[in-house]
Design a protein around this nucleic acid. Structure first.
Lengths: 206, 206
DNA sequence: TCCATAATTGAGAGTACTCTCATTTTTGAA
DNA sequence: TTCAAAAATGAGAGTACTCTCAATTATGGA
C-alpha cells in the first residue's frame, strides 16, 4: 500500500504521477508522525523529490492532507461498495461494511493510522462514512430490523467506535475479536438487543 | 476554572503556587491549541511568568502535560465520587457518573477540551476512567443488572463515547439530549436492552 | 532532432520553538 | 533588619520548519 497511488497513476501525465508520489509520501509521513507532526521535508524525501516540488503541486500542508484523506476514503468506499453489492439485507450490509472497513484499514497500516488521525481533526471523514452508512440503515429499516434513522450524533458515535477498533489493532496487532465486538457494539447503538446483535454478527462474519 | 489550581494553592509554598499557575496556564494553552500546539511561551505568558521559570518547575513539555491531565482527572474523580457516594444502585451510579463527568467537563470548557485531546494521546486517562467505572459495574453485576465485567477494550469504547459527547458540546453548545443519549449508549454497550437503557436514564436524569 | 513549455531543484529568508544559564529579584528564618 | 537560599528573569544558542524563487533539467509535439 506504500505505493498505491503511485502505481495507480502509472500511465497518467507526469504531473499526475508526481502528485501521486507526494500523496503516497504524505500518507506514510502522517502515519508515522501524525497530521501535525508530518513535515514537508519528510513527505518529499519519502517521495524521492526535492522540497520545492511540493509547492508546485499543493498550496500548503493543509491541501495535501485533505487530498490524501479523501483519496483513501474514496478507495475504501469503492472497495466496500463492491464487497456488499449483492447483499440485500441491511443488517448484513452494516456488519460486512464495518468489518471490511476496519480490516482494510488495519491491513494497510499507513492508511489506518491516517484515518484514525483524520477522524479527530477532519469532520469530512465522519460525513463520508455517514453517507454510506445511512444507505445501509435505510435498507435495514425497510425490513423492520432497525426502527429509527440515527441522527448525526449517533453516526459520530459509530465512527468513533470504528476508529477505536482500528487504533487498537494498529497498537496491539490484528484481532478478529475486536472486529466482532465492534460490529456488535455498532448494532447495539443502532437499537438491536444484545442477543440479536450477537446473532447478526455470528451469521455474517466468520 | 481558569484559575482553579492557582486558587487551590493560595496558602501553600511559593513553589507550589507558581507550579499551580503554570498548570492552569498549560490547561488554557492546551485547550486553545491542542497538546501538540501549546508552546511553553504561551503557557508562561498566560501564567504571567517568564519563559525560563517554566524550566525551574518542569523537566519539559511532556511533564507539565502529564501533570495537568492527572490533576484534572483527580479533581473530577473526587467531585463525582462525592456526587454518587450515597447511591447504592450500580446502574444509577453509572448513569450519574457519566452524566456528571460530561457536564463538568463541558462547563469548565478548558478542562473539557484538554480531556478530549488527552484521551487521544495519553492512555493513562482511559485507565483512570476505567478504574472508577469498574467499581460501579461490579455493583450493578451483584444486582444482576449487568451480566459480564467489560474488558479493557469495552472500557475504551465507553471512554470514546464520553469524549465524543464532550467534544460535541464544546463545538455545538450544551445539550442535555447529548448527555442522555450518551448515557443510553453506554448502557447499551454494557449489555442492557434499548428499552431498559432508556428507562434507566429517564429514572436517574432529569 | 529541436525547443518551448513544464517540472524540478536546492539554497536561503523568515519565523518559531525548546531549553540553558549568568544575572537579578524575592523570600522568610534568625 | 539582614542575608543566604530560593525563585524568577530574559537574552540567546541551537534547531527545525514553511514557503519562495532564480536557475537547471526533463518532456513530448512538430
Amino acid at each position: 500500500m506504500r505505493h498505491y497511488f503511485q502505481d495507480k497513476s502509472v500511465n497518467l501525465s507526469k504531473r499526475e504521477r508526481t502528485r501521486s508520489l507526494l500523496i503516497d509520501g504524505a500518507i506514510s509521513a502522517i502515519a508515522e508522525h501524525g497530521l501535525e507532526g508530518a513535515s514537508i521535508k519528510e513527505i518529499t524525501t519519502i517521495a524521492g523529490l526535492s522540497n520545492g516540488t511540493f509547492y508546485n503541486h499543493f498550496e500548503d500542508r493543509e491541501e495535501v492532507f485533505r487530498l490524501a484523506t479523501m483519496s483513501i476514503a474514496q478507495e475504501l468506499a469503492d472497495d466496500i461498495a463492491e464487497m456488499v453489492a449483492d447483499v440485500d439485507d441491511g443488517i448484513a450490509r452494516i456488519v460486512i461494511s464495518t468489518n471490511t472497513f476496519i480490516e482494510r484499514a488495519v491491513s494497510a497500516s499507513d492508511w489506518g493510522a491516517m484515518i484514525v488521525d483524520a477522524v479527530h481533526y477532519l469532520g469530512d471523514v465522519r460525513q463520508d462514512v455517514a453517507t454510506h452508512l445511512r444507505a445501509d440503515i435505510a435498507l435495514a429499516m425497510k425490513r423492520g430490523d432497525i426502527s429509527e434513522m440515527p441522527d448525526r450524533f449517533q453516526i459520530h458515535q459509530i465512527v468513533a467506535l470504528i476508529a477505536l477498533a482500528i487504533e487498537a489493532q494498529l497498537d496491539g496487532g490484528k484481532s478478529k475479536s475486536i472486529n466482532f465486538r465492534t460490529c456488535e457494539a455498532v448494532l447495539r447503538l443502532l437499537g438491536l438487543s444484545p442477543t440479536k446483535a450477537q446473532r447478526a454478527v455470528a451469521a455474517h462474519l466468520t
